[in-house]
């Protein structure tokens, strides 16, 4: 880190995030090996609470792999091995007392392609609360579903057709449904793996707006291949390249005054 830091104004992010926030997710020297191939070479990063952290970098740089480590989704891939330290609120995610299911309930995930269950909109959102026993009654459950849909800015569009299949919605609506589904289990962290890559610009704008709103209550980590998107929605940005974390810092710093040449090259479009 250089000693001179230009106090540039926050042009990129919509809302400034002045005060440093406590760390929600802490990782140290995380390495991932798929079979013979090493996908991540020791990533250490602190993800602050109630803010948006964006992971950027060219495809195959390991940003998605790293994201999937945080809620142990890599467990489902045969031959994947993860080493290092990942802590959620100071507790290791591999701590035996922490069930992987519990972890995933606390660290929700939204995927690249919208993947609603082929069930009704209501059932899609209600499934999580139901298996985790979050609702004491039917009315409770309905309230959770409605608030989640409201928080995902989807309620007004679907309130008359909660019984219709979730797969019948448009792509953008499906993705917001998936976000509502993730919110419904009241996670602390939401991981988003290129949530807008399958969406058109208007739907993207809506989802981005939503991410900005959700920041007030959730810690959000978003993987994106679009630098503009990272600049628009995130407070902090991390740049990955070839399985290494090259640079990480406040979004405006990364975009206006990166410390590393490779970051500079990527942001200015010289590769990637």
């Amino acid at each position: 880190m250089s000693e001179v830091q230009t106090p540039a104004p926050f042009k990129t992010s919509r809302t400034p995030d002045a005060a440093p926030r406590p760390t929600k997710v802490l990782t140290r020297d995380v390495k991932v090996v798929y079979g013979q191939k090493q996908a991540l070479h020791g990533v250490s990063i602190d993800i602050p609470e109630k803010s948006v952290t964006a992971f950027i970098g060219p495809s195959g740089c390991g940003k998605s792999t790293f994201l999937r480590c945080i809620n142990r989704m890599n467990d489902t891939i045969v031959g994947a091995r993860v080493d290092g330290t990942i802590e959620l609120d100071g507790v290791s995610i591999w701590e035996p007392s922490l069930d992987v299911v519990e972890l995933r309930a606390r660290v929700g995930m939204v995927f690249q392609k919208p993947n609603p269950f082929p069930k009704s909109i209501f059932e899609n959102v209600a499934y999580g609360p139901r298996i985790h026993g979050l609702a004491r009654s039917k009315a409770d459950l309905e309230e959770i579903v409605i608030t989640s849909l409201q928080k995902a800015s989807l309620y007004n569009e679907v309130k008359d057709r909660l019984d219709e299949p979730g797969t019948g919605l448009s792509g953008g609506q499906q993705q917001r449904l998936c976000i509502a589904r993730a919110i419904a289990v009241s996670p602390e962290v939401i991981l988003m793996d290129e949530p807008c890559s399958a969406l058109d610009p208007i739907a993207t704008a809506k989802v981005e707006e939503l991410i900005d709103e959700l920041r007030a209550n959730y810690t959000i980590v978003i993987v994106t291949h679009s630098m503009q998107q990272a600049a628009r929605v995130s407070q902090r940005t991390a740049f990955f390249h070839l399985g290494h974390l090259i640079e990480e810092g406040p979004t405006d710093h990364i975009f206006t005054n990166p410390l590393e040449q490779r970051t500079q090259d990527y942001i200015t479009g010289r590769f990637g």
Partner: peptide, 12 residues
């Protein structure tokens, strides 16, 4: 993707 969706919201 269906399996990921289920696992992603904490279903076993």
């Amino acid at each position: 993707s269906i399996r990921e969706a289920g696992l992603g919201i904490g279903a076993s």
